[in-house]
Simulated assay, not measured.
Amino acid sequence: MTFTPTPLAGSYVVGLKPFTDNRGWFARFYCKNEFAAIGHNKEWLQMNHSFTTEAGTIRGMHFQVPPFREIKLVRCIAGAVFDVIVDCRKDSPTFLKWFGAELSASNRNMMYIPEGFAHGFQALTENCELIYLHSELYQPGSEGGLRYDDPSLNIQWPLAARNLSDRDASHPLLDENFKGL
């Protein structure tokens, strides 16, 4: 695997190095030792799989509040998405800055998202599937979110937004009361 740091400290675009032969390819997408080299020392406690039917659909921007902050590893296994993270760590020099990258079945990249980040994505194609690994269990009542179109974040989504859940469309805009995670 390759670990390419993003401008937001502790986050990485993770690339696979597949072994290819006449049968196809094989690649590792997690190795405890390789992830330990970037400081990952938590166990994956939950794995999720999402399917999004329409291009332009946005899911996010989601996080869990302390003490349930989580690390995520996200991989697109069908279609393509624009994957976005926002640094919500209150003492970070990149507080409320965002980074986005295309994750697709064809480029095989993943996004490693540290604790204290919000995460979301926009489907760039129809019928997108993502696999998520989480370092914390889902905790109802401990979830939060940022508005996908918050002008103070100014996330540059590649397509017109569509098909937001009621929850995602109703996250409040950021104000002075948001102190971070």
Rank of each mutant, 00 (worst) to 15 (best):
V86F: 04
W98E: 04
L103R: 06
T94I: 00
I71D: 12
R75Q: 15
R69N: 13
D83M: 03
W98L: 05
D83W: 01
R59F: 03
K97E: 13
E102N: 08
F63M: 14
T94F: 00
K90V: 04
L96K: 12
V81K: 07
L96W: 07
R69Y: 06
L73D: 03
A105G: 08
T94R: 01
D87V: 00
I71R: 13
I71C: 14
Q64L: 02
K90N: 11
L103H: 08
S104K: 12
V81C: 10
R59Q: 11
R75T: 15
L96P: 11
C76E: 04
F68E: 14
W98N: 15
V84R: 01
C88L: 10
R59N: 07
R59A: 12
I77W: 08
A101E: 15
A78W: 03
A78D: 11
P93M: 04
R69P: 05
P66K: 14
F68Y: 15
D87R: 00
A101L: 03
T57D: 02
A101G: 05
I85C: 07
S104E: 01
D91W: 03
P93Y: 07
W98M: 05
C88Y: 05
F95Y: 14
A101H: 15
D87W: 00
R69V: 13
W98F: 09
E70Q: 14
A105W: 03
F63Q: 09
V65I: 12
C88S: 12
L96D: 11
F63E: 07
E70M: 03
D91Y: 08
D87K: 00
C76I: 05
I58C: 04
M61Y: 02
P66Y: 10
I58W: 03
I71Y: 14
S92M: 06
F82N: 01
T94E: 00
D87F: 00
A105F: 08
V84N: 02
I58F: 05
P67D: 13
I77S: 13
S92Y: 10
A105E: 15
L73Y: 14
V74M: 06
R69H: 08
E102M: 07
F82I: 00
C88R: 03
T94H: 04
A80R: 13
K72L: 01
F68L: 07
S92W: 09
A101M: 06
K97N: 14
G100L: 00
I58Y: 03
P66Q: 13
W98S: 15
A101Q: 13
G79W: 07
M61A: 04
G79V: 13
I58H: 04
K97A: 09
V86P: 02
F68D: 14
K90Y: 11
V86W: 04
E70P: 09
I85V: 15
G100C: 05
R69K: 13
I77R: 03
D87N: 01
S92K: 10
G60E: 02
D91I: 04
E102P: 08
R75C: 10
E70L: 08
K72S: 10
H62C: 01
L103V: 06
D87L: 00
M61I: 01
